[in-house]
Design a protein around this nucleic acid. Sequence first.
DNA 1: TTGTAGGCGTTATCAT
DNA 2: ATGATAACGCCTACAA
Lengths: 350, 350
Amino acid sequence: MSTPVSSIHESNDPPAARPTMQDVAHAAGVSLKTVSRVVNNEPRVDEKTRERVHQAIAQLGFRRNDIARSLRQKQTSSTIGLIIEDIANPFYSSIARGLEKVAQQYNYMLIISNSEENALRERELVNALLSRRVEGLCIVPAGTDHSYLAAELRRGTPFIFLDRPPLQLQTDTIVLDNRGGSRQAIRHLLAYGHRRIAVIQGDPRVYTGAERIAGYYETLAEHGIPCDESLIYSNCDEAQLAHQATHALMSLPQPPSAIFSTSNRISIAVLRALRSYTQQPAFIGFDDFDLADMLPTPITVVAHDPAAMGTRAAEILFARLAGSTVPFQQTIIPTRLIARGSGELPPPRA
Amino acid sequence: MSTPVSSIHESNDPPAARPTMQDVAHAAGVSLKTVSRVVNNEPRVDEKTRERVHQAIAQLGFRRNDIARSLRQKQTSSTIGLIIEDIANPFYSSIARGLEKVAQQYNYMLIISNSEENALRERELVNALLSRRVEGLCIVPAGTDHSYLAAELRRGTPFIFLDRPPLQLQTDTIVLDNRGGSRQAIRHLLAYGHRRIAVIQGDPRVYTGAERIAGYYETLAEHGIPCDESLIYSNCDEAQLAHQATHALMSLPQPPSAIFSTSNRISIAVLRALRSYTQQPAFIGFDDFDLADMLPTPITVVAHDPAAMGTRAAEILFARLAGSTVPFQQTIIPTRLIARGSGELPPPRA
DNA sequence: TTGTAGGCGTTATCAT
DNA sequence: ATGATAACGCCTACAA
């Protein structure tokens, strides 16, 4: 699986040290400051001098040390941080993409860290990033208390919370219309005649989970539908648990005529489990996913735009960096129901 | 969509400047060096002193400036860079995940940049990252000449190329077994009796594309099957072009009995196009994708492990940072054919 | 156990 | 147009 290729490592010459502006200055026979002027494209440098300096730079392979630079300049690292749960999750990678797109326009670099949903890890990462002097930080929080950021926030570092609001802290926040999305889904199922609507959800104590299940309860209540708690399965973020929940629901003496899943990952597990049943319940899932339209019964979903969360976060962040002192904003990213078929299956005729 | 929440911005007190070790030293009534000792957990500090310093740190909200630190310490930024085409693409985000997982173990941060397949942009990003003194760089190259990295490489900065080898440069490289994967796919189709096997591919001049199509040609030749160039559609990376190619193939007087797609994105576009035909050709795609097993005919693919590319890159990178001078390695990540149904459809009986 | 002096590589200030 | 000097915040080396 691995084969040696060739090597510069055989040669014994010690690698040349990295040249500094001082080295360039010597080589070009000018002062350090003149090199700095050339490197930074400052005016008022003689063309001949500039040329000589450029040659020395090329010859020595000089590259400005932005770390030293940022130390002297007013601590501008031109770097922002993003803390998410898992970059391999398409929801987060879309956020990252939106954020980085804007960051590139400002010539900022993006440091991405995965908290793995661990509050302690999250805090370590926040501290590590702040020590590195990121100029702003976007966080999909796993922790439950962000008051420790208050001092840093007052000091001027912008924090943007994504997907879930901060706790014990006031700052800019961008969330989905979780409750509204759920309401759309449940209203849709009700409109198609469903009355026994099951829910397979993750952790209802997490913000998004709480909002989504609240949308379910609210909508049922508004329509005067009594809520049957035996149709609600929680903490099914693991595929296997979602799988089991599905089978449990379908094995009830009176199975639900529709299932609502509160997330992407759960939806997929549920759909896998549902394959073994001939009588398919209606199904709607929160979050869109690739190929939802290609399944034997195309899947109706509550869709949204994760990349928009990233770009919106970036807009606010860079506005803050530019000095904006408008009040903290809560941005709500809209959801929309995409009817593809699975959500329009009618209930079985009684 | 956006509502003001509240604000610290109304208060007029200028945000406190960020305290330095010097400030802490004054507050604690000790010297700067003692603060440094406490912050870095050095021994030989009196417990009482340590306590006083900790209090001052807490009170002032001091946070060590790792930028200044890394300037004085032997330029260790504890940061590595990753340049990919698009973090929103699951292939790349999996690589990023693998890389970051290992980086976290070493307490390194990961800067991710998207080149958008633009060679110029790639080079700018490389330069920007090197100026920030990333200690190593992983690159999925878009450019066609990486000789400009030679000096930096000799100087000791490790460069790891992912998915495609560097051009005009020797360094550590990690690629998939592209050719072998294609060979598996084509042999599989041949074994099921197919003789007219179409290919819908991307740009055959890109390394991965060249290898994959070479595997196709080789395998046909080995089996003495004449190659019909009218069955090969290139440059179909755009979904719409792949779509059109599929329809063109299926409209031939003698359509192919099997289709091989050389990438993920193309596969999905092809499958969308194929939905409108009753007589389905056999199909195999390079790259696995979510829900491939859930489509009406589950999709046979050439699968591999993108996260392994990331972790392998990290292993090599950190070994180099630790001083390894073994020859450059080319690592080949294996592929495996996953037969799910679409690749086992027989050719129509003549 | 604690402190002083110097320097990392750059930019800011002020002089020439 | 060019340069000398100080400073950014911290760590290293050495001294007390």
